[in-house]
């Protein structure tokens, strides 16, 4: 057997080689910088091995960013999920979903910078939001919703909810409607159908949705600066990383912050996926014979 024949038997031939350029480029642009950042993080300016990490965890200015980010990202992600699930369960019965979906895709494609810019106007003291509430007599004076924790929270809600909703909807529509009908003919009312049929089938998908939405919220950057309070209550971890890199030009520290950011976020994601591992994870489409 020739070398070529032996390789072909293992699935390696000309076609397989097509994967190489993409892999090589990603190794160069993704893996290498990551490893380099890791290497750099252990070579702080003061020369000690763990100096950067000691600085991060020793200085509340850095340390608190983890807590600040969590305090934003976790509640927003959970709220988004909590809102998205019942709405997705309703919308799936809708025949004309496309219009609603298109409207919801808007904030995702426009991005956080534009949403923040709009929020500055809309939620500002002279904006339509405060005006309408005052017209309805719900508030006496304009509310201050931007330049604060609330501002960032709202921006994450506006860009995050559509994302969470569309993911949830794709899981919800993946469940064979006959399963719910079967539940109904077997005597389960709406709430018990949800608890015994839909929820167990949806939970693995919801765990994934939670992870992806959380990652988005955790890496919040532009809105934390533009509509937040970036020196105190919304000084999120990505701001700290950015400042280390581009204001102090301390790339070693910046890499350290980025890595800690990745690690803390992965810890939450890992926990969610670990819980998911305990669940049923087969197809939800009703097994085909």
């Amino acid at each position: 057997m020739t070398v070529r024949g032996r390789l072909a038997a293992r699935g390696i031939d000309g076609v397989t080689l097509l994967v190489l350029p993409a892999v090589a480029l990603l190794v160069l642009l993704f893996v290498y910088p990551f490893l380099y950042g890791l290497f750099l993080s252990f070579r702080p300016k003061d020369g000690s091995l763990l100096g950067n990490y000691a600085r991060f965890f020793g200085d509340p200015f850095f340390r608190d960013t983890v807590w600040v980010t969590m305090r934003l990202a976790l509640p927003v992600t959970l709220l988004n999920l909590l809102l998205a699930l019942p709405i997705a369960l309703r919308v799936r019965h809708l025949r004309r979903q496309r219009l609603l979906i298109t409207v919801l895709v808007l904030p995702i494609t426009l991005g956080t910078v534009l949403v923040s810019e709009g929020m500055l106007n809309y939620f500002g003291p002279q904006g339509w939001f405060s005006r309408t509430l005052m017209l309805l007599g719900l508030i006496g004076a304009p509310v201050k919703l931007v330049q604060s924790y609330t501002g960032v929270f709202l921006s994450l809600l506006i860009t995050g909810f559509p994302f969470t909703f569309l993911l949830t909807l794709s899981y919800v529509t993946g469940i064979d409607p006959a399963l719910e009908q079967a539940g109904a003919t077997l005597g389960a009312g709406p709430s018990r159908r949800f608890r015994h049929v839909l929820l167990p089938l949806l939970l693995p998908g919801l765990a994934i949705t939670f992870c992806l939405s959380f990652v988005q919220a955790y890496s919040v950057l532009p809105s934390a600066v533009l509509v937040g309070d970036p020196s105190r209550t919304t000084r999120v971890i990505s701001i700290a990383a950015y400042q280390a890199a581009f204001e102090e030009y301390d790339y070693a520290m910046a890499s350290t912050v980025a890595l800690i950011m990745g690690a803390t976020q992965l810890a939450v994601v890992g926990m969610a996926l670990g819980l998911r591992g305990l669940l049923y994870r087969g197809p939800a489409g009703g097994a085909k014979g």
């Binding site: 064979d176 006959a178 399963l179 009908q181 079967a182 539940g183 003919t185 015994h196 049929v197 167990p200 089938l201 049923y280 087969g282 197809p283 939800a284 489409g285 009703g286 097994a287 085909k288 014979g289």
Partner: peptide, 11 residues
Amino acid sequence: MVFQNYALFPH
């Protein structure tokens, strides 16, 4: 009721 694709609860 017995459904065309059985509609058994997969979990």
